[in-house]
């Protein structure tokens, strides 16, 4: 299969370009551009990276809850100067999000790309991969992203601004975010990889951050995208997913019940895409990577669309070629095809 027909390869190229732009982009577009482009990028691009060209919406949101809304509630003074920055951030996020929907996760997020690259290394090292997690474990993990959004992005920063908790919890998600460590390391900085001994709160947060980064490094070798499953950005995208222009649709057929290859191909283990009879199958955990469409063997059953324009539609010929390319990549013998994972 030529690489330019392979959606996964095209996606990797886009992810690589996005990674270069988001980690080193200021070299091309100017040092101050991160402050200028949006400050509301809907993926984990970190402002602590000295060379970044744009940064993630979770940074201004936490700061606005902590430094603007909290103190304003405390003082009982509300005004446009409090509301407008939050509204501006959310509207900027929404404008960018509408363009690509949750594809910001699957196509542009530097941390998502990093985890996939580690996974590819794991495949090449022939480390026995757990392609799917246990369904009960998945069900237990799924609410975590909502708790991360609610507590780490909204409630703790707000409580810090109100004075109920210490300033350690002013931007707690950034304090534990593995993308902060990743992108700053990729930019040649060691200054975000630390244990902070200035207070118990900072020490706990930094231990969580570094330990989680170590966990992601190793788990990504054998498990697909471990951090994405608990990322608050995924939850935030879900809140707005109806307005995004990129759609994932399905035309259910009775053959779907017996197949299930789409669910096996899904890096986020969304088994519902296999069983769903709905047309809209953009589930909360979806990152719009398009693997389910690639590995659907039936013509026209699944499609990735931009509004109504098809970007990728499932096709038996493509499926055969893609499956073959996958086996070749994994170095599996043809005999293992039937039971092989996609």
């Amino acid at each position: 299969m030529p690489f330019w027909k392979n959606l996964s390869v095209i996606r990797k190229i886009v992810q690589l370009l996005a990674f270069v732009f988001l980690v080193y982009g200021s070299v091309f577009v100017g040092f101050y551009s991160a402050d200028k482009i949006s400050g509301a990028f809907p993926a984990l691009a970190c402002a602590y990276d000295a060379k970044t060209a744009d940064y993630c919406v979770l940074i201004p949101l936490q700061h606005q809850f902590g430094h603007l809304l909290g103190p304003a509630i405390s003082a009982g003074v509300f005004g446009l100067s409090v509301i407008m920055p939050i509204v501006t951030t959310l509207v900027s996020f929404l404008v960018l999000f509408v363009l690509l929907n949750k594809a910001f996760c699957g196509w542009l997020c530097p941390l998502g790309f990093f985890q996939e690259v580690i996974g590819m290394i794991g495949q090449k090292l022939r480390i026995n991969r757990s392609e799917s997690l246990d369904s009960s474990l998945i069900d237990r993990i799924r609410p975590v992203k909502w708790l991360m959004l609610l507590f780490l992005v909204i409630l703790f920063p707000l409580a810090s601004g109100l004075g109920f908790v210490g300033h350690e919890l002013g931007d707690p998600f950034c304090k534990i975010c593995p993308s902060r460590i990743l992108t700053s390391l990729a930019a040649g900085q060691l200054n975000q990889l630390y244990i902070d001994t200035s207070s118990i709160g900072f020490m706990i947060l930094s231990i969580i951050a570094d330990t989680m980064f170590g966990l992601i490094l190793v788990l990504s070798l054998t498990m697909r995208q471990p951090f994405c499953r608990i990322c608050p950005m995924l939850a935030m995208h879900t809140v707005f997913k109806r307005v995004g222009l990129v759609r994932l649709v399905k035309s259910y057929t009775s053959r779907c019940d017996k197949c299930g290859l789409c669910a096996k191909a899904c890096p986020m283990d969304i088994r519902e895409i296999h069983t769903s009879k709905e047309k809209d199958i953009l589930f909360p955990d979806c990152t719009l990577c398009g693997r389910c469409v690639e590995f659907c063997p039936d013509k026209g059953v699944m499609a990735l669309k931009y509004v109504t324009i098809p970007i990728k539609v499932s096709d038996p010929q493509y499926f055969k070629a893609r499956n073959k390319a996958q086996k070749a990549w994994e170095g599996k013998k043809p005999a293992s095809r039937k039971r092989g994972m996609v």
Partner: peptide
Amino acid sequence: DNWQSTQLGIAAVAGGSLLA
């Protein structure tokens, strides 16, 4: 870096990797 230790940070990453 007077109160943030990179060495301890690397040790914590190693610990997380071991845990994984």
